[in-house]
Simulated assay, not measured.
Amino acid sequence: MNTAITKNGLHAQAIRTAFGKTTVLHDVSLAVAPGETLVLFGPSGSGKTVLLRAIAGLDPNATGHVTIAGRDVTTAGPEGRSIGVAFQNFALYPHMSARENIASPLRARKLPEREIDEKVSAIAKLLKIDHVLAQQPRALSNGQKQRTALARALVGSPKILLMDDPLRNVDAKLRYEMRMELPRLLRRANAAAVYVTQDYREAMALGDRIAVLIDGHIVQLDDPERVYAAPASVAVARLFGDPPLNLVPCRPTLANDGLHVSVFGLDLTLSMAGALAGREAMLGLRPDSIAIFADPQPGAVAATIAAVTPLHGKVVLLLRTQAGDEILASQVGRAPETGSTIWFRPETDTALLYDTETGLLAGEARTATEEAA
């Protein structure tokens, strides 16, 4: 484990939580350095909020160890952990103004009134809510409530900052703006930050690293580019990308010039090791790595456009071959008409190969547990 993280950041080790006979977290470990944002990403029900509550000292059922800045706080309550928390449900005190909500952690520390006013004003200006400080939560918009909760979490300069999907309830425009603004705010706070989201785009935009949590296990922990380019399992691959990764059944064979797969009637050569040669596998192809042609081309397959869907400045095409195989492709520009014939060719430079039996990426040697330790 990185000694800088141990001395100055957050280290959660072997966190386990069960409700009755159901285990929600299975010995989860992670470490976050000061100034780093670790995004905890996963589907609903995977245990993300439960893990945050365990780190914050809010879950009496949790076992394991939590160390903050080199101090074991496993037995300490939330007030003894120097943690700032922002939840998606805002959790603002309804009888207090926005100013008093933000000031509440500073008052708990009995700071001088002048210092409290200065800190509250500074963070409110930074988050562009200084004009609503006198209002109570019921008079605030969802975006203003969220920024008030975030200001309250940040104002005390906590060593650890936990954010539970804080942008989920704000409108799309503000969410986009905050995705750009938050990284700067978090770097300025220099806290070890854990940010929960179910949105892979948000995870990519905000995370220095991403921990993918599925069914109470961290199944991949890496930088955003790596998680997107090489999902460690089929389960992760299905969560990253819109449209999602194409997964095409195949049985690779090894030849002198490399690993070969036969899909859509094409023989493709892959630039990867032959670990899965002769085994049932799935070829992973990103929709944007499917080249589209209006006319026949060498090495291209004819297909009918079964459906066209506009998406984020692109069009997504559902292609169906004469053999009945289907594949998703995406392209920028005007969409061909549904029912028309086009030709496509998979580009193999970014192709992935998964073991059908285990669901794991070929050649994936490191485990998430090893990376987190």
Rank of each mutant, 00 (worst) to 15 (best):
P287L: 00
L111W: 07
A12D: 07
H11E: 04
Q198E: 12
P94W: 14
R286L: 05
I290C: 13
A307Q: 07
G84D: 01
I214V: 11
P243L: 00
R16D: 15
F344P: 06
P249Q: 04
R53A: 06
L206E: 00
H217S: 00
A149F: 03
P166L: 00
M272K: 06
Q322T: 11
F264P: 02
S29F: 04
D208M: 09
A12N: 03
P249Y: 01
R226P: 01
M204D: 03
I5L: 05
A368D: 00
K159D: 15
R179Y: 06
D349K: 15
G333Q: 06
K110V: 00
G284N: 04
R188F: 08
T304E: 05
Y228R: 15
K125C: 13
A86T: 13
S82H: 13
V66R: 10
V24G: 07
T148W: 11
A229Q: 10
G156T: 02
I305F: 12
L317Q: 05
L259W: 06
L58I: 08
I210E: 03
V196A: 14
I15K: 08
A365Q: 15
K314I: 01
T341E: 15
R366I: 07
V85H: 06
E113T: 09
A124T: 03
G363R: 10
L106P: 07
R251D: 05
D349S: 15
S29T: 08
L247W: 12
I290Y: 14
L174C: 09
